[in-house]
Design a binder for these strands. Structure first.
Lengths: 335, 335
DNA sequence: TTGTAGGCGTTATCAA
DNA sequence: TTGATAACGCCTACAA
């Protein structure tokens, strides 16, 4: 493996290095005869162009960076999958930046943009201060997914989480529930506040009293759903329904309820959030709000690639909607 | 944002470009006074070094590529997570190559190595022809995870799947079962053959008859487990236990059994494979073989980074073991 | 300790 | 259509 460069190919094919380069960038500009010679030389030498040199020369990498809070979370993974698909189709590579929910990591990854290591960035559910993001981004191609930065200069595609919890809550209200509990995700996430707001909105809109002792803060995970439900079900006055900020918490709550001899949905109707795989498989199957992961990924990537190409984007802010998936845990019966 | 280069910084700090470069690569070689001046200039100009140029000059990218069959599968994701962690700690970036189980994509990604776009590759559960892999890899730093290429030149870290199904099967045998069924993954995966072999080995070792009508081929997913179990449970003669090649198939089988009025583990003891999150949460909780995802990721990455540094590796073949996780579905009772 | 200058392997401009 | 040559921005002998 003595490294073989374009020079070697050129020499072997008895043409100039410029001609070899053209065979890659603009083959039509090369005579068929020379093209053939070059191809043969490439073949014989087993030559592969050095992408580093090309990138430097072009000041472009054909790589986009995905900054993602946690690669183990299936919701994020689904978004990532569709991003990767679109990127691949367009001949782009995907660099992975798992922040593990750390602010420093998020910031650090963002700097790769200024270092020219990537042509653009998709920022999934950022937690960094918006103005700091804008400062670092500084006109580079970036698309944000999942944060409602209405006032931002940065193109954003997001889903309306506030509306979603509203829909979920109203579904339970329509089923006759009035004493409804809410398990929130961590309240240091903007997202959690939006969702909680949706819950409150729905209750108020229907003239129902919000019992503050029915509102709990968890961490999105199964265990916290279990523990919160155990605590809640020991209250003197019990809710008849629960909206959970994540499917895992919902499933945890269902399991806790069962451990305490309650039957879901009879004694406690439950709606989750995310539509993870488990939601359709668990027992009883979980009604939930499905987020449009595929679309979030696809649309944001298309926007980013357009930005990179320097095209102007018609819509700089795309709003998608979650979908209510009705299964068994909410107690809805088809007529 | 007129692009600012090292030249600009040098001019502003009234030093040479070499001095600026040294501030990054070897600050001790620069006098404190000049260092200070350079820092100030960097700050004022908001300079970020161009990583493309650096990479070309160094012929190194500080990037590793992970070729992964399917990013949506949580088992792979867990491996990826620990890879990313180790890489990040060592100041390496991770480029993501989701093949979607396509051979062409696997091959295509592998060529990024020759194009110098990455310093090394971790190949998760490759399906490409081993000799083709070796040909493309051609002495570049590569580590394979999960494929028992005993005869390969390429360092490998893998877990002993054959032994695992053996252990799972023996666990059921020890619990008194003799009529044991097996749900295999797709048989065009080497992996599936290894696992099936383990099952057969255990049966033979304990002098038990293998009923070929109890061996089914599925696709690893929930639905196939459900369907296979439904088919199996309509046989005239029924098995009393089941080893499934994946947790999803196991859970599907449990659900099918319940739909047919069977009780797990009383009527059918079940052991799965993978220890996905759902395994601990489902009802009854699933006994299963846990694969050492973390270790697979960590060890392979450490090996790869060592290879990149040109260090010699003591062990070129690392064998890890899966762990039997006993829960409710196998019917084991603690004494 | 500092500066000068050559080169990493391409691409792109220009002239032939 | 082709070839010579100057970038791209940085790193690193080597010399001062």
């Amino acid at each position: 493996m003595p490294k073989v460069t374009m020079d070697d190919v050129a020499r072997k094919a008895s043409v100039s290095i410029a001609t070899v380069s053209r065979v890659y960038t603009d083959p039509d500009k090369v005579s068929p005869k020379n093209r053939e010679k070059v191809f043969r030389a490439i073949e014989e030498l087993n030559y592969q162009p050095n992408a580093l040199a090309r990138n430097l020369r072009r000041l472009q990498t054909n790589t986009i960076l995905i900054i993602i809070p946690n690669i183990v979370n299936t919701f994020f993974t689904f978004i990532l999958k569709s991003i990767q698909d679109v990127a691949f189709e367009n001949n782009y590579q995907v660099l992975l930046g798992d922040t593990d929910r750390s602010l420093e990591r998020e910031e650090q990854y963002l700097y790769l943009l200024q270092q020219k290591l990537v042509d653009g960035v998709i920022l999934l559910f950022p937690r960094l201060n918006p103005s700091l993001i804008e400062e670092i981004v500084d006109n580079h191609p970036v698309v944000i997914v999942g944060q409602p930065l209405f006032d931002s200069k940065i193109p954003t595609v997001t889903n309306d989480t506030c509306l979603s919890t509203q829909i979920a809550t109203e579904h339970l209200i329509k089923l006759g529930h009035s004493k409804i509990a809410y398990f929130s995700g961590p309240l240091n996430f903007l997202l959690s506040h939006d969702r909680l707001k949706g819950f409150r909105l729905a209750m108020v809109k229907h003239g129902l009293k919000i019992d503050e002792s029915f509102i709990f803060e968890g961490d999105f995970y199964f265990q916290s759903g279990y523990e919160l439900a155990a605590k809640m079900l020991s209250l003197p006055d019990l809710p008849t329904a629960l909206v959970a900020g994540s499917d895992e918490m919902a499933i945890g709550a269902i399991k806790a309820a069962r451990a305490l001899g309650k039957v879901v949905p009879r004694d406690l109707a439950v709606i989750g959030f995310d539509d993870i795989k488990m939601a359709s498989i668990c027992e009883p199957s979980l009604s939930t709000m499905a987020q449009p992961a595929d679309e979030l990924g696809r649309i944001s990537t298309e926007m980013l690639l357009a930005l990179i190409k320097g095209e102007t984007i018609k819509e700089r802010f795309v709003l998608l909607y979650d979908k209510l998936v009705i299964r068994e845990s909410c107690g809805f019966k088809k007529v």
